[in-house]
Design a protein around this nucleic acid. Sequence first.
DNA 1: GGAACTCGAATCCACGTCCG
DNA 2: CGGACGTGGATTCGAGTTCC
Length: 687
Amino acid sequence: MLPSVTQSCYTRGMRALSLCNHLQRRGSSGNYYFRVRIPSDILEVYAPKKEIVFSLKTKDPKEAKARCRVEAVRIDQEFDEHRRRLELERQQQEQLAQAQGVGVASSPAAPLTDLDSIPDYELDRLAVLYLHEVLAHDEQERTAGSSEARKEWEENQEFLRQLHEQKGMPFTPESFPTHGVGLSPSTIQRKRERARLFLQAGGSYLASGDISIIHDRALAFLAAHDLKVEDQVGSLAFRRLCLSLIQKEMDAQEAILKRLDGQWIPTPPASQSVAYSGSQSATAGLVIGAPVVLQVNGQGQIVQAQTQEASMIPSEDNPCLSTIWESYLKERKPAPSTIKNFEGAVRRFIELVGDLPVKAVTKSHFRQYKDALLKFPVRLPHSVRKKSIQQVVAFVEKERQKGTAFELLNSKTINNKYLGALKAILAHAVDNGFIDDNPANQIRVTHDADKHGDNEPATLPYTEEELNVLFSSSFFVPGQECKFKKRMKRDAVLDYRWLPIVALFTGARLEEIGQLDVADVMEEDGVKFLFIHADQSTERRLKNKSSRRKVPIHPRLVELGFLEFVKLRSKQGAIKLFSTLKEMGGARKDKRTDAFSKWWRRYTEAIGVKTGKQKTFHSFRHTSKRALRNAGVDPSLTDAIHGHTNKSISAHYGRDKDGMGYALPVLLEAISRATMDRVIIHNPEGN
DNA sequence: GGAACTCGAATCCACGTCCG
DNA sequence: CGGACGTGGATTCGAGTTCC
């Protein structure tokens, strides 16, 4: 009886570890994905995620299989690393609890450690300690039994218990023997596979100086020894340590293989660890006085070595770029999305030239930056997102030789975003007297008109025919079945129908409409209008000052039942008019229309109205502008309705308390002239 | 025309649900 | 359970806009 039980457990174990079982083909693209469930004992590490899925970025089954094998081993290592760390943490907490006699106290967060201040011989000692830990862990598994062995033991016991129960026989469970169980066949197989792969790959990683294979593990290892260095992964010391750890990991895996082959390889003694917390080492001062300064870029590579000059020494009067950036943030407090954009630009620049003291930054650095950006692709493949700018450029070059084409950054993006950000930040350095001239000035990419054609507009208005297609689809006609609203609640359908209709008759921006409150629908001088304005209490932002405006509600909107819709939301107690739109987080904070925007693209594509990048939701704004122009409405009135600035200085005179230059009845008359009477729209109420 | 932003669109990916 | 598909979050690109 017993052999079959063992067999079943064994097979189950093998299945979980079979290296190609995590392969899955997904979506219409036909790309292969890696998919694995997170083992229950380390679920907490990944919570709330229960499985790991990512694209293998290939449609070729053979290639996918090969990549899947590598990923399976890598993930397995990652899981193991978490197990090891959790175990260590558990032991530390137990010790702490014992020492304190009661409960488990939470340990204070480790202070930041300055890795560069740790002498080389201590880094070497850490590497030896790493080797010791890997082999000691392996030895412990062999003596006490691995977690797999324990699991299989428990499954075995449970099976026996059920069997006894069925036969009505008494069963006394045995506890897991703590010594002498050794490794399960599946663990042996896994260990062997992993060791072989690491030994195969490790050498090439060392040769190319690529530390990605050990990066996360090194961080976990350092953290386990109270060394908190997340902010220093670009430092030379971290890089040195990682290379050293790859070597030690190879040594360890070689020893493990020998152990698996039956040789006795003792675990080397642990080097004595030193407490580095508190960061300030006595050697730190030596670096400053050194005659030669090594410039280290974001990847920890030495990019230049030169004799130390005054401008090269960071000081209070000559802060590093990163310090200037922080000061810029503090003083200017830009919008979250701007911070996000600038952050990327600054990071890339520092990667390329190093975190230079501001007086050392020259025009040639910017030329270097511009040249690199000209070879930089848009929408980086995930595999190289974390790589340095030089590595990305090298990657693109290599792929290009293989025949893969990349769309490169638009010159406008390079100028406005990348160079523009650095220019703004260095202008801040000029304003604060750190430097006299902005070295970024005059560096820019000459526009290539060929990308969009000389006069071709980026966004086009919707034509009448297109509007009729858009608004007569089954989504907009109440009572019709439609796949687009299959999963939508009634209120969401209402919001999604009204958003484009409001956009058509107001010409307002998507987000301006999306963030409207019920209370923003007002009446003055007998004219109902939408009050588009910024709002401190909800931190609502507007594109700019002139965006604040009152837009009269077009008679067609009233006809279609817009005011009833407002009443409905009011009755529901909603604050937001489009109450089903959810607020975003992070860099998209207080944005509500992201999901709708995406839905709109998919919808318009599906019904065949969207062609390329020129027909988007923003087209409604262009449609409105065009309709008002065609109806002979005065451009300054159109600007007032759309929230565009009127350049004339006299336009700033004669405004009311809300800054409105025109009386509402005048605006209503103007907006009503764009009748859109040939566009058929159904009343959005109904199902 | 350049600087300094803001915003919408596009993309990748995670996740939930449904179906066989 | 595996796979297809729909939806939404995070991130990035680049167009739009105003101010100087």
